[in-house]
């Protein structure tokens, strides 16, 4: 019993702490593997997803509408014009270091651009691409 308590405390403290993109990717991989046994993240699939035109939203039909074709570059919000720091970890070390923040933005942006929540597998692939792109 005590081990379970310690373990959950550890998990809670881990969730509140800054993490690496690899750890965040692993959270989604673990989640995806529940639905799809043996799932592994693929940066290539993440890249294709990033460039996929969903066309739900006129102003932001695709991720690149705001984040540009090259995630190593700074983007610009398609509506407000505000500058957006690069999504790629190689260009912006702050990306994918806060699980709550990552989850919040997947929540908002998937709904807005794709018209539905993203699946854990899509999120894992996306994080893999953004972590690996150079």
């Amino acid at each position: 019993m005590k081990t379970i308590a310690t373990l959950s405390l550890l998990l809670i403290s881990m969730a509140a702490q800054a993490e690496t993109p690899q750890q965040i990717r692993q959270i989604y991989v673990t989640e995806a593997a529940i639905q799809q046994a043996g799932f592994t993240a693929a940066a290539k699939r993440g890249e294709a997803f990033y460039h996929q035109r969903f066309g739900i939203n006129d102003k932001m039909p695709v991720c690149t509408s705001c984040h540009t074709d090259d995630p190593l570059k700074s983007g610009q919000h398609a509506v407000t014009g505000k500058a957006i720091k690069p999504l790629a970890v190689a260009a912006n070390g702050e990306r994918f270091s806060d699980p709550a923040k990552v989850e919040k933005w997947f929540g908002r942006n998937c709904k807005e651009v794709i018209g539905r929540a993203c699946t854990p597998a899509e999120k894992a692939d996306f994080v893999a691409y953004m972590s690996e792109v150079r």
Partner: peptide, 11 residues
């Protein structure tokens, strides 16, 4: 395009 919107004060 550098301004894009009146909401973009910083432009």
């Amino acid at each position: 395009p550098r301004i894009k919107s009146a909401a973009n004060c910083e432009a």
